[in-house]
Design a protein around this nucleic acid. Structure first.
Lengths: 113, 113
DNA sequence: ACGTAATATTGTGATATCATAATATTGTGA
DNA sequence: TCACAATATTATGATATCACAATATTACGT
């Protein structure tokens, strides 16, 4: 049921499926930052950064506030960090089980071929 | 720091950024299912389904168990549903605030141009 | 009004992702 | 061993995403 919902939800997760966008969100954990602050911190092309900020804003993850010529971005819903942190937990759990598998394989057949 | 980590983490979220893969995960909430069961339930091309299952498996979201000619898939870490549900919550919250914005706009200027 | 800093937008080519179609593999029963 | 069912893999073309470069916009100080 509700296949359209999956379409929207996929869009939501897709926004998180990019390393630069994740770095931006992480950079905004503590407080808002201007584009140039983010540019210094993340060391990426100005237009690239601006594009990814625009995508995050369009998807509703961040909002901006203009102050003169500066544009400050901040996270709209801080609970997104609960999502990111939970993702990290699951991801690390997966890495660990992969590692255990590799360990098991290498101890059972340490020298094949 | 740890920009490589963001690369991996983005990969993780990217796996969730596809409507069919979300539908597959939702279909596997209660119990394992064979490919043909999923095929009936989701009504997608056989090869498409197989490919997306393979992607989910490669990323560690699901594992499979062969029984004769059937292949049963199940979710590896059920906590992934906590992630999906949290995503839905945040997503709906975003939709609601967008809706409020639209409502506010339409009530303030109901007939411009 | 002019110049400049900060940011956004647009154009473009490379790469990734997707669905479909065609083909290959594997297991089972006759 | 043959045929068939279940699934996987490969090939292909369409579309999406990405980073970079170039250009445009906007606000401020002079």
């Amino acid at each position: 049921m509700h296949d359209d919902l999956h379409e929207f939800k996929a869009d939501f997760f897709k926004a998180l499926g990019n390393p630069l966008r994740l770095r931006i969100l992480d950079a905004l954990r503590d407080h808002e930052k201007s584009v140039s602050m983010l540019q210094d911190e993340l060391a990426v092309e100005q237009s690239t950064l601006s594009q990814q900020l625009s995508i995050l804003a369009k998807k509703g993850f961040i909002v901006s506030r203009k102050e003169g010529t500066l544009n400050f971005y901040r996270v709209k819903d801080p609970d997104v960090y609960r999502l990111l942190d939970l993702g990290r937990t699951l991801f690390e759990r997966h890495l660990q089980s992969s590692q255990r598998l590799l360990d098991a394989l290498s101890s059972v057949e340490p020298r094949n071929k």
